[in-house]
Design a protein around this nucleic acid. Structure first.
Lengths: 337, 337
DNA sequence: TCCAAATTTGAAATCGCTTTGGATCGTAAG
DNA sequence: CTTACGATCCAAAGCGATTTCAAATTTGGA
């Protein structure tokens, strides 16, 4: 069933039927109803490719996943995004690539073949090659995270610096002085922001940051474990941890137990929580103190902002920093004597 | 840069250029090279919508995620799938919905507007309404999982029954008699298969299944914890667990510790592991015995099979059951006296 | 009653590609 | 010297929508 058939069926022209279905004002209300009824009755839906070709709009956003970077948070983000976009009939196109080069190739492809109207960029570096290229390609995009300077693109990020500063400060308030930071991969913007927050908090109390208590690594259980274990082997053990993710926290927790210590008493920890439905900080034993920000909500908001961008809002007007709440639970306690 | 411009630029007709780029035989090798060179030099790529419209093929597969069903395994699957499809320039279209009705609506939409050539169906019931509807719509699909009977569609599944039978049997071999099954949601095919495997193993040893040791629930840390905790409150405590997922296992593990017991000594557990890069069964303390099957690999294979389906292979020829390996680690030990 | 303005509809061009059905040319077979 | 054929190339017709431009029909005021 295509437009032509539907139009013939109704005894109308394609023009009128198209207009009726797309809500143009210059069509009689009675015919509009008649058209709408026939369309649903006959199960007509405009051919997406034809419409895209005619309008020049893809009605789709793209997102490229890097195999080494995606994790449980990715699907949460995607879920929030897709949910927002579903009723607007905007498609989400995902591809997976292994390298930055492949990622860039994917953008070139998408731009040249007009598969998407915009893309979502994630896990940025302060000076990100991809940004220059997207600008070059003229492909609109929204950055989930931040890059350096005052960029001309849209972005949404959480206040990583503030969150980490607050977490660190709280641990200092509890009397901890040897506080470890198990951070994300070296060089990524969010990792720098977190380090900055950490350093700021320590600096404000006159505590000199100890390089052996700062580690940059991917967010896995295993690396959390290893990092913590190594620190426990050294002379000055940390009495508290600021963990980059829940997965890292699980590993650190394991290392603490392995070392015969108790979380919340011998060692404290505050982890960053993206809020997973299947892993609740509140349910852990001891329950985990966290800096918390729903990545699912971020996905939803990104969908919203992208729609605004497409509607013509200036990219320079689309900047959002989300505050991060801190939830104190049992994993944080006063520093041991 | 479109085909017309490129053709003019080359002093050729659109026909020849199109053919040259798409590898048709009736074009001189010299001109083909000339065309290819110009195309890359000028950054030409066929407009995807135009091509789709002309060929009638979407060059895209769809996947609908249900908010209540997706989890960390989802992105792994998606990653494997996308990786396989990337170089074939097949797009993946994901949407998120909250209900079965919305999911079906999404399929209708996709079918009527010809957005995808096929879809991937996941988390099936033995008699799944979606299957009937997809058959009805004539939208090709591959089922990740299984439905009842000898279906006419393509599917790929792991041997859930065999895996669970084997895990249960191993626990029986270790002397356990009160073995709990923390299964997936009631009614889902894979959950039935697992229950069947569990019952078969018990039956073979003359052990009567105890309904209070069998629970159906979603795969979250929390539900694992609650289920185990409830079982520990009752008269006949289980001495072993067969856990449906790593998340469930984390919760059960927590309940075991909370009850003052030790995993691998007082209580045993075998969990099913989809293989996550960020949560390694081998690294847990004690390390976790698992039935293991990479869901990422499954995604990759599904991509492969879908391509075969599109290439004309009969859906009835595309049926795969993957064996599941069992990896014994420290979380399983002899039953206590 | 009549004319101008608003309402409502349609014919046809357009989007950028693929593909059918020839044309053209050189060459080998008859 | 034709003729037929393979090798190359091209013009034009779709694919199924949107949208411009114009025509037909109502409506309303003088």
């Amino acid at each position: 069933m295509n437009l032509k058939e539907l139009a013939t069926n109704l005894g109308l022209s394609q023009t009128t039927v198209s207009r009726a279905l797309n809500g143009y004002p210059e069509v009689n209300e009675a015919t509009r109803l008649r058209v709408a009824e026939a369309a649903t009755r006959l199960g007509y839906r405009a051919n997406a490719s034809a419409r895209r070709l005619a309008t020049g709009r893809a009605a789709a956003f793209g997102m490229v996943l890097r195999t080494e970077a995606y994790g449980p948070h990715t699907v949460e983000f995607l879920g929030g995004l897709a949910e927002r976009l579903f009723h607007d009939e905007i498609d989400i196109l995902v591809s997976t690539v292994e390298s930055e080069d492949d990622e860039i190739a994917a953008y070139r492809r998408a731009a040249a073949s007009k598969k998407v109207d915009a893309v979502i960029l994630t896990s940025p570096y302060p000076r990100d090659r991809r940004i220059a290229i997207l600008n070059d390609l003229g492909l609109p995009y929204l950055l989930h995270g931040r890059s350096e300077g005052a960029p001309s693109h849209a972005w949404l990020d959480i206040d990583n610096e503030g969150a980490t500063e607050r977490a660190t400060r709280h641990l200092l308030d509890l009397g901890h002085r040897r506080i470890a930071l198990v951070n994300g991969p070296k060089g990524m913007t969010f990792a720098s922001h977190r380090e900055a927050g950490y350093r700021a908090a320590l600096g404000a109390r006159g505590v000199t940051p100890n390089p052996s208590l700062m580690v940059n690594t991917i967010f896995t259980d295993e690396m959390g474990f290893r990092s913590a274990q190594q620190m426990f082997e050294r002379a000055h053990r940390p009495t508290a941890f600021v963990a980059g993710s829940m997965m890292t926290a699980l590993g650190i927790f394991r290392a603490i137990r392995s070392a015969g210590m108790e979380l919340g008493r011998d060692v404290s920890m505050i982890a960053h929580d993206d809020v997973f439905p299947y892993l609740n900080a509140d349910n852990m034993v001891p329950s985990m103190s966290t800096t918390r920000s729903s990545i699912r909500a971020a996905g939803t908001r990104v969908g919203e902002l992208l729609l605004q961008l497409m509607a013509g809002k200036a990219a320079t007007e689309i900047h959002e920093v989300w505050p991060v709440e801190m939830v104190l639970r049992q994993s944080t306690g006063p520093a041991p004597e």
